[in-house]
Amino acid sequence: MGSEILILQYLLSGITKGSIYAMVAIGFNLIFSATGVLNFAQGEFVMLGGMIAVTLSFYFPLPVAVAGAVVIVACIGCLLELLFFRPLRHHSILHMIIITIGLSIVIQEAALHIWDEKVRSLPYFTGNEISSVKIYGAAISPQVLWVLGTITVSVILLHIFLRYTLQGRAMRACSSNPEAAMLAGINISNMRTLAFGLSAALGALGGCVISPITMTQYEAGAPLAIKGFAAAILGGLGNPMAAVAGGLLIGIIEAFSVSKLPAAYNDVSAFAILLLVLFIRPHGLFGSPSGQGVREF
């Protein structure tokens, strides 16, 4: 294999990983913009999406299973907001962040007791483990195209929702100025619930499409959460397009570092990037230093 094809292969694998991180990062952003909370349970949504879809796929055809998983996890997201964050909205942000840490553990342990510690996965959406598509000589699984396609479509849909629909605009209004939004007659609490639901749904969808490639296990959430967060910070918190760029960048760097570093140190590169960004450009690659206080979707 020529070195160009090898580089292309790494690049594609990086884009695949990166688009997953981007999906998690967008979920982070949604909740952060709406509430100011860093949601440590974001990775758990991804894990739950995959797990529920796997279980449903025993009884229903694949598309129904995936749709069902997304709806169920979205409901779980809304429920968490209603149960924990709405009654606690007068608490400090610190308390809410600690609660998300607790939730992440409880969800993980619940998943361990509902399912088990076995690694499971959805079937490939099209083709199987060995089928591949050639792109300029590099071989990729058709599932990768599914991942990229799903994420592209959902990012575009989210963008349209936030820019051009009444609900989406109301959500943006809430994040940029809650008091003014309240005066304009927007129900902020409901918007927050919606943000949690949307974020959970996005996470679950991501969890379903990546399940055939990366497998799903009860403890798969936390590593995704930290990398999604790194992606969000790298891009600049509060900007979904920047989060996508940040995610892709981290995925690509990670893919190339696999070829240089031992596999055990796989995550070191992603973390090193996070620290570097915090050191040099805390407002992220695409954020502006003055705009740190402004929360935008």
């Binding site: 860093l38 930290i226 055990a264 140190y265 996070l274």
Partner: peptide, 25 residues
């Protein structure tokens, strides 16, 4: 040093990442 210079809760995530790295190593 980097995480605490920033406003907000960056320390939580920075330390989470750090802990994961230490565990992996």
């Amino acid at each position: 040093y980097p995480a605490l210079r920033l406003k907000g809760h960056y320390l939580a995530m920075a330390t989470l990442g750090f802990a994961m790295i230490v565990h992996k190593i």
